[in-house]
Computed example of a mutant assay.
Amino acid sequence: MNVRRPPDERTAAEVMSTDLLTVTADESVLMAWELMCRARVHHLPVLDGTGHCLGVLDSASLTAAWEPSGPLRARRSVAALLPRRGPACVRPDATLARTAAAMLAAERDHVIVTGERGDLIGLITARDLIAALAGVAGRDRSRTSSMPSMFRIEPVLPEHAPDGDAVPGSAVSPD
């Protein structure tokens, strides 16, 4: 057991994950699901074209919104699943008590850590806070053994709908 400083002396910067797997707002729901499964993560920060964090897609929300109605629904963007309110944020120097309060106020199990310009620099989950409260090191944040940070999966979806019609957006027309 790796004991750390008492929780009331620790800051967000000390417990945040910084090796983050992210997606852009226009990525598909299927892509997000594949990334979460392959990387074994439960939270994906969603970024806009400038790198600003629009929110965090969590596995519970993704699972609840999943519709097995075919490839068209799986291709919708992750932006459609983000909460209307922006993400809960704290600064790196926020105490763990302040971080926990931000999570509670937002009714979420995560909070993003932002820099001076509001840029995403880390993520803290409820699991990270529990580990800090217990006075132990959190899980190993390095994904080098299972997945590099610059990883991309391209889902393979059928080019024809079950009824034989071409899927809109595909380059192949029905035979």
Score class of each variant (00 low, 15 high):
residue 2 N to K: 12
residue 2 N to H: 15
residue 3 V to R: 15
residue 4 R to G: 04
residue 5 R to G: 09
residue 6 P to Y: 14
residue 8 D to T: 08
residue 8 D to Q: 12
residue 9 E to H: 09
residue 10 R to W: 00
residue 11 T to E: 07
residue 11 T to M: 11
residue 12 A to E: 01
residue 12 A to H: 06
residue 12 A to D: 01
residue 14 E to P: 00
residue 15 V to R: 02
residue 15 V to Y: 01
residue 16 M to V: 03
residue 18 T to L: 04
residue 18 T to I: 07
residue 20 L to G: 01
residue 22 T to G: 03
residue 24 T to C: 07
residue 25 A to N: 07
residue 26 D to Y: 05
residue 27 E to K: 14
residue 27 E to T: 10
residue 27 E to C: 12
residue 29 V to T: 10
residue 30 L to E: 13
residue 30 L to D: 12
residue 32 A to M: 10
residue 34 E to N: 12
residue 34 E to S: 13
residue 34 E to D: 13
residue 35 L to S: 05
residue 35 L to H: 07
residue 37 C to D: 15
residue 40 R to S: 13
residue 40 R to A: 08
residue 41 V to G: 01
residue 43 H to D: 05
residue 47 L to K: 05
residue 49 G to P: 02
residue 51 G to C: 04
residue 51 G to T: 01
residue 52 H to E: 15
residue 52 H to S: 15
residue 53 C to W: 01
residue 54 L to H: 08
residue 58 D to R: 10
residue 61 S to E: 13
residue 61 S to R: 15
residue 61 S to W: 05
residue 63 T to D: 10
residue 64 A to F: 02
residue 66 W to D: 07
residue 67 E to W: 09
residue 68 P to R: 11
residue 68 P to F: 08
residue 69 S to L: 12
residue 69 S to H: 11
residue 70 G to E: 13
residue 70 G to N: 06
residue 73 R to P: 09
residue 74 A to W: 13
residue 75 R to C: 10
residue 76 R to T: 12
residue 77 S to M: 08
residue 79 A to N: 07
residue 79 A to T: 04
residue 81 L to S: 04
residue 84 R to G: 14
residue 86 G to V: 00
residue 86 G to F: 04
residue 86 G to N: 00
residue 87 P to M: 00
residue 88 A to R: 09
residue 88 A to F: 03
residue 90 V to F: 03
residue 90 V to E: 03
residue 91 R to P: 09
residue 92 P to M: 02
residue 92 P to H: 07
residue 94 A to R: 04
residue 94 A to Q: 05
residue 96 L to I: 03
residue 98 R to E: 15
residue 98 R to C: 04
residue 98 R to A: 14
residue 100 A to W: 10
residue 100 A to D: 05
residue 103 M to I: 03
residue 104 L to A: 14
residue 106 A to D: 06
residue 106 A to K: 08
residue 107 E to G: 11
residue 109 D to Y: 03
residue 111 V to F: 01
residue 111 V to A: 03
residue 114 T to Y: 07
residue 114 T to G: 02
residue 115 G to W: 01
residue 115 G to Y: 03
residue 116 E to F: 04
residue 117 R to N: 10
residue 117 R to F: 08
residue 118 G to S: 03
residue 121 I to E: 04
residue 121 I to P: 00
residue 122 G to W: 00
residue 123 L to V: 00
residue 124 I to M: 05
residue 127 R to V: 12
residue 130 I to P: 00
residue 131 A to Y: 05
residue 132 A to P: 00
residue 133 L to W: 13
residue 134 A to V: 06
residue 134 A to F: 09
residue 135 G to N: 05
residue 135 G to S: 04
residue 136 V to D: 05
residue 136 V to A: 05
residue 138 G to T: 00
residue 139 R to K: 11
residue 139 R to D: 14
residue 139 R to H: 15
residue 140 D to G: 01
residue 141 R to I: 04
residue 142 S to G: 10
residue 144 T to E: 14
residue 144 T to K: 12
residue 146 S to E: 14
residue 146 S to V: 15
residue 151 F to S: 12
residue 153 I to P: 04
residue 156 V to W: 14
residue 158 P to G: 03
residue 158 P to I: 09
residue 162 P to D: 03
residue 165 D to E: 15
residue 165 D to A: 15
residue 165 D to G: 13
residue 166 A to Q: 06
residue 168 P to N: 06
residue 170 S to K: 11
residue 171 A to F: 10
residue 171 A to G: 11
residue 173 S to M: 09
residue 173 S to T: 10
